[in-house]
């Protein structure tokens, strides 16, 4: 038996999955602030030493991007949509297209040697995409972190507080922002965003 227990946690498509916001309803509004949940993506936490060459080469060959070593950055595979984000000097978040997490974990495990860990956390968090002119205002109302473009260029990713919860804020391109929020706080975050976005005529799709 392997020293680490890995198993495919996703059932077949006959089982109905429910995202953390499954019980909330969409809000119809304008285009100044549009929030959309992207549920059921694969989320893996990868931990290991940044100087472990096998770690870098495995990420490159399996995910198709360089392992980001620069703090507070993430890299996106434009073709697959997969991304790898620096979380701390020995911790990365991989966000993968739905259903790929088991295969990616297995492939990474085959290629990485030395001390590392990979943990599937996809059930525990969800991703929101934000766009529109008022994203800056919404985030300024919600986070202590400075989201001005001079401090938050495309490619940056920061774990910080969000209202009284926590969130990861990412900027994949000029138009969009991403929030990664925890499942148990998702309802609170939804209500917070809906409330804060009311003055901007928010649209929220779940």
């Amino acid at each position: 038996m392997s020293k680490v227990a890995v198993f495919n946690q996703c059932p077949g498509s006959e089982v109905m999955a429910e995202s953390p916001l499954a019980h909330q309803s969409s809000v119809k509004g304008g285009r100044a602030l549009i929030v959309t949940e992207h549920a059921f993506l694969g989320h893996l936490i990868l931990r290991g030493q940044a100087d472990n060459e096998s770690l870098k080469s495995a990420v490159l060959s399996v995910v198709g991007v360089e392992l980001p070593l620069q703090p507070l950055t993430f890299v996106l595979n434009e073709t697959t949509g997969a991304s790898v984000q620096w979380l701390s000097p020995d911790e990365w978040l991989l966000i993968l297209p739905a259903g790929q997490e088991y295969e990616v974990e297995q492939n990474l495990r085959q290629q990485i040697s030395g001390h590392f860990s990979i943990v599937n956390v996809g059930g525990g968090q969800t991703l929101l995409r934000l766009k529109g002119d008022k994203v800056f205002d919404l985030l300024s109302k919600s986070c202590v972190y400075d989201v001005h473009e001079r401090n938050f260029p495309v490619g940056k990713a920061v774990a910080t507080t969000f209202a009284k919860a926590t969130a990861i804020i990412r900027r994949p391109n000029e138009q969009e922002w991403e929030l990664v929020i925890r499942r148990s706080f998702a309802d609170y975050c939804y209500r917070w965003i809906t409330d804060a976005g009311r003055e901007f005529d928010l649209t929220f799709t779940v």
Binding site: F116, G124, R182
Partner: peptide, 8 residues
Amino acid sequence: YFTSVTDH
């Protein structure tokens, strides 16, 4: 390594 899986 430790990773929280409380919500997962």
